[in-house]
Each structure stands twice: as structure tokens, then as C-alpha cells.
């Protein structure tokens, strides 16, 4: 199978306007090892794209470049068709890109409000922290995500796994995110909480938010995602619409790097 242009946007999606996010030929190396090698990825508004691959395939690294945690050695990122420089998490947030990290990235010793507003605190006219307003806003946003949540004054280390997850999600959606990156969002959750997260994803999708779902487990994302992009050894194997491929075919992409005919092959695809 011959390889066309960098794997990415399938033609039928192009009529939906400019992609929210385009990542083109992104590369990054750590100490000589190419963690991501010429990867390209797109995201449309209101679309859920699953990013799949084994542990160490480079998916988290690729996505950390988008969220500003790492700086790419090469490649380009466009937001709404305009090229942007993302050098820090602050830059990413300015473009409406919010991330829910696998580790949740919560400061365990402070409360929910302090975590949600960390780095973006609300201030009073005196320049001091406006804790009352922050707590009030936290109550509102947590009320949407987790109506039974009451422990607003406690450090988040006292919370359950699901509650901590809600705090991390609240932090991502409170600031009107346009792009949401979820790294293994359900890895630490029970079945009921996993279902809640799935419902939330569908609800956010309806609001036109683009979502990257990163997982090493195909079953977590196949039903939620509109498209899946598979990575292996730092390179993109291929991208396919979930409607056009079977789970077994995607599993084949993950394990052997073999691209099914319905997928757009990337530079990491097995050539035969």
C-alpha cells in the first residue's frame, strides 16, 4: 500500500470548515531517542479523536507538546488554521487547549477551588486572592459534574479517586475550553464513574468542544471516538473513522502496525 500525504484529515470531513487543531510532522527526541517522529494529527470542532497505542508509543508525549508541557524539536501546530507557538502550558491554555493528565496533576495539599484556579486565581480589587468567589464558582462547576460533592474545604488528597477526577475535569472545563485532552481519563475509575465520564464527553462534544482521548485500551475509546489515530514507536500508523473499521482491525494497527484499507496510513504503517 502506497503512502499518500501525511495521515490526517480524511476528505469527507473537510467540508466542516477549518480543523480546530492541526499538528503537522511533529518530532521530539529525548537524549537521542525519538519519542515522536513526524507525527500529524487533526481535530475538528465537536469531534472526539481517540489516540491509541501501546505504552511508550509516544501518544502522551505528542499530546504534551500540544498542552505545552514539552516543546517540539520540529513540526507545526495550527489552531483554527493559524500557526501558533506553544512554549508553555500557559500558551496552550490561552488557545483554549485544556488537559486532564493521567496523573490528574493536582496539588494534593490544597482544596478543590485552589486546584481549579491554580495559575489563574481570581483576585479582589486589592490584588488579594478572592477565595470566596473562587469557592462559589467551584461549587457551581462541581455541581454540574458531581452533584453530591460537598468537601470543598478539604485538601484534595482526602477525596476519593472519582472526586479527584471531577476536580481535574472541572479545572479543564471551567475556563471554556475549546479543545480538551484527556489522558487515560478512566484508568483509575470504577464502572459507574467511567460511565459518567463517557456521558460528560458526549455532552461536551455537543457543545462543539474537540476532544482528544488517549488510551492504551481500545475498548475505552472505540465507542466514544469519531476517529482513531494509532501510534507505534513514536510514529503514526494510521487514522481511521471508527464507522469504517472494526475493533479487530484497529487492534491490528496497534499491535502490528498493519493499516486496514479503510484507514489513511501514516509514516509508521507496516509496508508490504
Amino acid at each position: 500500500m502506497s503512502i499518500a500525504e501525511p495521515a490526517g484529515l480524511a476528505e469527507p470531513l473537510a467540508d466542516r470548515g477549518a480543523p480546530l487543531i492541526e499538528m503537522r510532522d511533529i518530532s521530539i527526541a529525548f537524549g537521542g531517542i525519538k519519542a515522536v517522529d513526524g507525527a500529524s494529527l487533526d481535530l475538528m470542532p465537536g469531534e472526539v479523536v481517540g489516540l491509541l497505542g501501546h505504552n511508550g508509543a509516544g501518544k502522551s508525549t505528542l499530546i504534551k507538546i500540544l498542552s505545552g508541557a514539552y516543546k517540539a524539536d520540529a513540526g507545526m501546530i495550527r489552531v483554527d488554521g493559524r500557526e501558533v507557538a506553544i512554549a508553555s502550558p500557559r500558551d496552550a491554555k490561552r488557545h483554549g487547549i485544556e488537559t486532564i493528565y493521567q496523573t490528574l496533576a493536582l496539588a494534593d495539599n490544597v482544596d478543590a477551588a485552589a486546584n481549579i484556579f491554580l495559575g489563574r486565581e481570581l483576585l479582589t480589587g486589592w490584588g488579594t486572592l478572592d477565595d470566596a468567589t473562587m469557592e462559589s464558582e467551584t461549587r457551581k462547576v462541581m455541581g454540574r459534574l458531581n452533584p453530591h460533592f460537598r468537601r470543598f474545604k478539604e485538601p484534595v488528597k482526602a477525596l476519593s479517586g472519582g472526586q479527584r477526577q471531577s476536580v481535574a475535569i472541572a479545572r479543564a472545563i471551567y475556563f471554556n475550553a475549546r479543545v480538551l485532552i484527556m489522558d487515560e481519563p478512566t484508568a483509575a475509575l470504577g464502572p459507574a464513574e467511567t460511565k459518567q465520564v463517557a456521558e460528560l464527553i458526549l455532552q461536551l462534544k455537543k457543545q462543539g468542544i474537540g476532544i482528544f482521548l488517549i488510551s492504551h485500551d481500545l475498548h475505552d475509546v472505540f465507542d466514544l471516538a469519531d476517529r482513531v489515530t494509532v501510534m507505534k514507536n513514536g510514529r503514526v500508523v494510521g487514522t481511521a473513522r471508527t464507522a469504517d473499521v472494526t475493533q479487530d482491525e484497529v487492534l491490528g494497527m496497534i499491535i502490528s502496525g498493519k493499516c486496514p484499507p479503510a484507514a489513511v496510513a501514516g509514516p509508521g504503517a507496516l509496508r508490504n
Binding site: 502550558p89 496539588a107 494534593d108 490544597v110 491554580l118 495559575g119 483576585l123 486572592l129
Partner: peptide, 25 residues
Amino acid sequence: ANRLRFGRYVFAIGGNPEAAQLSGV
């Protein structure tokens, strides 16, 4: 320590330096 951003950041860094950095601190 309690009323200014700076103090909030000091405690957040102590709780989880990586989280503070990823939050743009």
C-alpha cells in the same frame, strides 16, 4: 502565604511541583 497568589503558588509547588508547572505557574 494565605492571601496572595505567590503564597498559593508556594504551597501548590510543595504539594505537587509538576502540577503547579503544568498549571502555568
